[in-house]
Amino acid sequence: MTTRYLAKYPFSREAKVFLQEYGGNLDQIIKENPNLIQTVKERVSSALIGKTFENQGKTFADFLSYPLALAVVNFLNDPLLKAKFAVSESKKLYMTLLSEVNEENIVKLARETFNMDLIRRETVGGKGQTSGVTYYLTVEDYLKYSKRFKEPTWRLINRYLRKGFVEVYRRELIRIICEALKEKIMDKKIKVNLKGELREAALDLKKELERFRESKATWMKGRKGAEGKPPCIEDLMNKIKRNYDLSHVERLVVATYLLNTGYSVEETITVFSSLPDFDEEKTRYQVEHLGGLRGSKKKYSAPNCKTMQTYGLCKRNETCEGVNHPLQYRYRKRKEKKSR
């Protein structure tokens, strides 16, 4: 196993095996790699502010910074930090995999590191068709990792599903692998104890995290229209509060709902700022678009209940009686209040 491979895929099964065999004591490693602690800090800190950690992905320290950063994150055991770290590592992996020239590495990660049942088939191009590789993933693996992708293309009905296998293209497989890494980081519930320099670094990061949280916390208090949100929107808002990573469609729903209930573009953007992968520029572009400030200058409405259902976002309960559009909900409630 080359250092380069380990640095590129520090979470891989090979890396795990390597670490186990390499063993060594932590102090020794840190002593041998003087910049390591700094790299670890950068790796975690850039995740927190939503920037992808840039490293050359070549050296032994580049590799080691991952397991140590993960240890720091697990030591601090904070859901927001963990989510941000997971998103950041998953994004980093996406860039790495897109430029991976050795296709075998992609397949190996899927099969060996993430235990996916993957079939690879080469297609020889006929007349007017390009040859290439198609992958088939078991439907269970597919559902496990694609369920959070809400774009129509990921719906099972828009897929070729035969005998339990779903056809996916290379780029899609890469996205699935990245999602798998994200889940792997998020799901890990181990208690880690740190000593010495690494512990100091972790505590520094904790302070950074607290500062970050304070700066984002203000908007949540006393927001307008706090009462009278339909259960579907309430659910999404709670997810945001708990720093869940929302899918594109979920964000779309929240943004259109807020923009249509008196939130300004700025206020809407602030709401999204606590998402683990918040990117102000991208968010602004999208929100402005939805708010009718860009493109067709058309202000978008929120999806209706039926559409929400097909997205699997509908949380209908008894308070929704007679409502078939989330935006209708408030008026109904207001009316009910008046009539009481």
């Binding site: 369920k147 129509p152 293309t153 719906r155 099972l156 009905i157």
Partner: peptide, 25 residues
């Protein structure tokens, strides 16, 4: 399939009910 979560089972239901097909796809 035993391990499928509720969310994953929801997608199977959508499939069986023919929901979410996309003309563009």
């Amino acid at each position: 399939t035993l391990k499928l979560t509720q969310e994953e089972r929801r997608e199977i239901i959508n499939y069986l009910k023919g929901q979410g097909w996309s003309y563009e796809k």
